[in-house]
Design a protein around this nucleic acid. Sequence first.
DNA 1: GTCTATACCTGGATAGAC
DNA 2: GTCTATCCAGGTATAGAC
Lengths: 202, 202
Amino acid sequence: MTTKERIVEEALTLFSVKGYKGTSVKDIAGAVGIKDSSIYKHFTGKQEILDAIVRQMGICMERLSVSIGLPDEQEAAKYYGELSLQQLQELSRKVFLFYLQDEFASRFWRLAIMEQFRNAEFYEKYRRIFMEESIAYLTGIFTEMIRQKSFRETDPEVLAMNFYAPIFFLLSKYSGRPEKGQEALEILDKQVAEFHRCYSQQ
Amino acid sequence: MTTKERIVEEALTLFSVKGYKGTSVKDIAGAVGIKDSSIYKHFTGKQEILDAIVRQMGICMERLSVSIGLPDEQEAAKYYGELSLQQLQELSRKVFLFYLQDEFASRFWRLAIMEQFRNAEFYEKYRRIFMEESIAYLTGIFTEMIRQKSFRETDPEVLAMNFYAPIFFLLSKYSGRPEKGQEALEILDKQVAEFHRCYSQQ
DNA sequence: GTCTATACCTGGATAGAC
DNA sequence: GTCTATCCAGGTATAGAC
């Protein structure tokens, strides 16, 4: 990993805990193991490091399904087949654990949460990645499931929100404490079981 | 309003947009209309202003139901009677609009979100007020509704999460933009209608 | 491309006049 | 209880040696 990459790496770690304003260039340099002045050979300033993080997030997260290794909406129909309870739980756990534990996504989640009110770019990315794309992906899957009659006839967007909102809630609750992920997963499984009971036609 | 109260007031407004670190004592003093040095006649420092805000939130929000003017769990059974769709929608709208638009709660919500990772006290208060108490309140209501057989036999906590998670999601999405509240309310109503369809026994 | 040294500024906080 | 003046620490950033 180049020094420039390590700067971005350490900066994201620090920003995601102490915030942008709460992290100094000295802190970042210290974490990398160089002096603060050396940072300026790689970036014009602190703001540019933040910009690099945002850009990287844009690249990494362009599509939720690709990042998590989930089938895309077209394949999903086959992949999930009749969408059994076990498969639904697998789907919810994958999404949840990805955002909670993925090296990059979990830190970006926290940073975006902290910066969303100060920084329009963060608000946009945060909303798109962690809200709209997730809902859109699930809407696609559920549309197909309903078409296949494995799910009850319902507005697929309402269904997607019903499925995703508890995941989002638990992410918000546990994003600072990934070590408590097990506790969260148990709650999540209960939610999904209830979801399945409500909508599945088996 | 005393100067001390106005300092807390303006500080909360600024903190809730620019964050604690992003707001200077000069900014606060400027908003109040005094010089920064005068602040120190009322507070020992910036940190104490933040402490005052946290304390005030503790007082204001001790019980969700009181703050919002909702019936408590015992009265709720009578109040909501058979819990019609309209009453469920009223309940969800009250909770949602309170956190979104209440002068104090909406700003505290944003501040707490930004400070939760840096400040354990904020994380505690944020989680207690905006997550656990809401869920606990709804669990109480739903327990009673199930006992009355107006709701299907279900784990009331799962029900509470099902009901509250979309509210929480929409709050997170629209907390910076209360002017778009109408758009959010339409989505919320759809969610509640679906919830009612799933669980009500009428 | 990393270092030392340094310039410059902002922000938190105090002292003391009124 | 507000002001002016001031101090000090810490943070961003630059210059220049190696």
